[in-house]
């Protein structure tokens, strides 16, 4: 193996280990804010892996959208909600043994599968190395808007559904909210429709008397 390939692999394992470590810390951190920050770290590591594989566009998008937008909002929510960590950990000791057994079983299964070289990785088709001069972004766009156009449209429908759901579940028509009613605002014709004159002298007299 050439030194370049060794460096490449070493970097891959470094960042892959980074993902695993920060993933573990997400679920073990005591403070929910720390959990969220570790999730950011995991995402940044994943973005680096993508860039290493030649998918720069996806790596940048991951950082911009997930780290930049989604996780920041997540942090806001975590900080705004007063999460009591103690009550959340109450059932921990009760469920821990069962959880450990199940995760142990899954780890053993995966380990056994990897150990025996049964995974069939030898049959894996290798991704072709893109020739120079082909833009990652352009190719992604091309695939998305031609080959995968049907699925792309379904994604659009899912976003529409997301908008409808978010509005349905959060919009409340409470009677006392001071909502802007544009219809009512436009119906104003005379000055007296939107201005009410109050005689202040009456008020001052009333105060004097009392």
């Amino acid at each position: 193996m050439s030194p370049g390939a060794i460096t490449y692999q070493a970097l891959f394992y470094l960042f892959a280990a980074g993902i695993v470590f920060s993933g573990l810390r997400v679920i073990t951190a005591r403070n929910p804010v720390h959990s969220a920050l570790f999730l950011v770290l995991a995402l940044v590591n994943a973005a680096i892996l993508w860039v290493q594989m030649g998918a720069e566009f996806l790596g940048i998008i991951l950082v911009l959208v997930y780290v930049g937008a989604v996780m920041v909002m997540f942090l806001f929510v975590v900080m705004m909600l007063d999460i009591n960590a103690a009550t959340m950990r109450k059932g921990m000791t009760r469920y821990a043994p069962l959880g450990l057994i199940i995760s142990g079983l899954i780890a053993a299964e995966i380990g056994w599968a990897l150990w025996g070289h049964y995974l069939g990785i030898a049959n894996t088709p290798h991704t072709a190395v893109a020739p120079a001069g082909i833009s990652n972004t352009e190719e992604l766009g091309r695939a998305l808007y031609t080959h995968y156009i049907y699925v792309f449209e379904i994604a659009a429908v899912i976003l529409l559904l997301g908008i409808i759901s978010a509005i349905v579940l959060t919009l409340r028509w409470r009677p006392n909210t001071r909502r802007q009613d544009i219809n009512q605002q436009l119906r104003v014709h005379k000055t007296s429709d939107h201005m009410r004159l109050v005689d202040l002298r009456d008020n001052s007299r009333g105060r004097k008397e009392s």
Binding site: I154, I158, L161, I164, S165, V168, L169
Partner: peptide, 13 residues
């Protein structure tokens, strides 16, 4: 997968 997501998200709501 996309079909199941569309169906499931509607059902949750």
């Amino acid at each position: 997968y996309m079909g199941i997501e569309l169906m499931a998200l509607s059902l949750y709501t």
